[in-house]
């Protein structure tokens, strides 16, 4: 049974290496709902923490294609259908001249896709999150290395998980209020 009175347990480690080691151990122990927090991305964590929603490349590709296509179609429609200008009998659908704007709109929409996609997949903006309830967590963006095991993990049992975290030799363990 998971424990609902707290959101989880937060352990602080003294170095990035200790955090990576702890995250590995947590994963081996069978926990799934856990996360590591560090001031900078840590290479060693990427194999331990599985990417939950690996959709970023698709989002960027689709938004880029959407931008480019709509830009191209808009230029065709304007130049050939809505406002045809006969300039010495030159073709109305002069597609090579439409490529620069099509390209720019592809890039523009793909870039928005990357930024908005990154924020959405990360659940941001999120002004409130339970981990912020632990005062020590402030250092997670400057020099602290934290591991949080969430209470909604199937394997989470307060006493056992606490004992497990202690075995990883952290600096400090805190309960996270929901």
């Amino acid at each position: 049974m998971s424990d609902r009175r707290i959101w989880g347990l937060l352990a602080e480690f003294d170095s990035p290496e200790a955090l990576i080691h702890a995250a590995r151990a947590t994963s081996v122990e069978g926990y799934v709902c856990f996360d590591a927090y560090s001031p900078s991305p840590l290479e060693g964590l990427s194999e331990v923490v599985r990417l939950r929603r690996p959709w970023m490349p698709r989002i960027v590709l689709l938004s880029g294609l959407a931008g480019g296509t709509s830009g191209f179609v808009l230029q065709w429609w304007i130049s050939a259908a809505a406002y045809p200008l006969d300039v010495g009998g030159r073709p109305l659908f002069s597609w090579p001249a439409f490529i620069p704007v099509t390209f720019e709109l592809t890039i523009l929409c793909a870039a928005f896709g990357a930024v908005i996609g990154m924020l959405m997949l990360n659940g941001l903006p999120a002004p409130y999150h339970p981990v912020f309830n632990v005062p020590q967590f402030r250092s997670a963006t400057s020099n602290g290395f934290f591991l949080a095991i969430e209470s909604n993990d199937k394997q989470f049992r307060l006493e056992e998980t606490l004992r497990f975290l202690e075995s990883l030799n952290p600096l400090e363990i805190n309960r996270i209020a929901p």
Binding site: A23, D35, A36, Y37, S38, P39, S40, P41, L42, L45, S46, V48, V49, L51, R52, R53, M56, P57, V60, A110, A114, V115, G117, M118, L121, N122, L124, P125, A126, P127, Y128, H129, V131, F132, A140, T141
Partner: peptide, 18 residues
């Protein structure tokens, strides 16, 4: 609301590279 979680960083690095 950035928290620096490992999940955040992964998506972030992917987005930054793209």
């Amino acid at each position: 609301g950035w928290r620096g979680s490992a999940h955040h960083w992964k998506q972030y690095q992917m987005a930054y590279l793209l």
